[in-house]
């Protein structure tokens, strides 16, 4: 008797802590994964979000050493009635329209070209992708050098030898005569150069997913290549293209690093995009933290509204 019961007790004694440990560990692992993430999210995202929402209703300045004073919707009203702010919004809208538009057209065209297999097509694709892998600040700095009217490659390649009657892109002048918006288009060009590959990449993955037999069926059905392009290629790629456009639109409204690297908003306020202005209000000069927070919320609302339009369109396209 004694031997067997002892063995049983031993076995039970061993089994119990094992089971207990496993019960604990499941729970512990869950906590281990969730809480650090949650704490980080709360500290870095959630708290600033709520706190800045609060600040946007105050006259707080981060350097004033004064507690925030509640001013209600004054900051919002000020911004929305400020014609200067409307100008920045308009500049940003124009910038977004041109960059995203050109990136879509060029990215799509490049994708269609690169889809064809030719000698070295893999290498060409990789080379095209390089700009989007660079840091925006670096891109801004070296394009600034390239645009330089005295020694930049840009003018040299365009055939302007003498800096006196050549364009100075970032200064917004041609042969020392101011050209409206030239600087803005100069920055837009860099944005297009940098992010066209992103659109190309997404479109390319969409193109590669179209089965060959659809084109073969269309060829047999006597569809012209134009017809094939509009009725097979475009609809198949549309969902991915829309996602690329959505991403680029959001990014365009947040454009900051490229502009800061090249013009810092100048000359005058030609390249003063809304995000650049936000930075200026928040961290330069008067440090108008409350007003900057309100502006940040307005930008957020615009981006959410635009994203919603796109997402609704994408969902509708997917349902069909």
């Amino acid at each position: 008797m004694t031997v067997s019961t002892q063995a049983q007790i031993q076995a039970a004694g061993q089994a119990q802590p094992q089971r207990k440990r496993r019960e604990l560990s499941d729970r512990a692992i869950v906590n281990l994964f969730i809480w650090p993430t949650l704490i980080l999210l709360i500290a870095w995202n959630f708290f600033p979000l709520i706190y800045s929402l609060f600040l946007s209703f105050t006259d707080y300045s981060a350097i004033a050493n004064k507690p925030p004073q509640w001013v209600g919707f004054k900051n919002y009203a000020d911004i929305l009635t400020d014609t200067q702010m409307w100008k920045y919004f308009a500049t940003t809208g124009r910038y977004a329209l041109v960059t995203v538009g050109m990136q879509t057209i060029l990215g799509f065209s490049l994708a269609v070209l690169v889809r064809e297999k030719f000698r070295g097509s893999g290498l060409v694709t990789t080379l095209i992708l390089i700009p989007m892998m660079l840091s925006p600040v670096v891109v801004g700095l070296f394009w600034k050098l390239m645009y330089n009217p005295s020694f930049g490659y840009f003018n040299f390649l365009l055939g302007f030898g003498n800096p006196v009657n050549a364009p100075d892109m970032l200064a917004g002048r041609f042969a020392n005569v101011p050209v409206p918006n030239l600087a803005l288009w100069a920055v837009a060009l860099v944005d297009i150069w940098m992010w066209t590959p992103f659109v190309m990449l997404l479109v390319l993955s969409g193109l590669k997913a179209i089965p060959d037999y659809l084109y073969e069926a269309a060829a047999i059905d006597r569809a012209s290549s134009w017809f094939q392009f509009w009725r097979i290629t475009v609809p198949s790629v549309m969902p991915l293209l829309m996602i690329a456009i959505l991403f680029r639109t959001i990014e365009a409204f947040k454009s900051f690093d490229l502009v800061m690297g090249m013009t810092g908003g100048g000359p005058g306020d030609q390249t003063e995009l809304i995000a650049v202005n936000l930075y200026r209000q928040a961290f330069l000069g008067q440090w108008r933290t409350g007003r900057a927070s309100a502006l940040a919320y307005l930008i957020l609302i615009i981006i959410i509204a635009i994203s919603n339009l796109y997402i609704r369109y994408i969902n509708k396209a997917n349902e069909d």
């Binding site: 037999y213 073969e216 069926a217 047999i220 609809p235």
Partner: peptide, 21 residues
């Protein structure tokens, strides 16, 4: 002759229908 010229009808093993139509 091209596929269009030959005027044949082809039924593929995969149902080659045009999506979104």
């Amino acid at each position: 002759w091209t596929p269009a010229d030959r005027d044949v009808a082809f039924v593929f093993q995969q149902y080659s229908l045009y999506p979104t139509m």
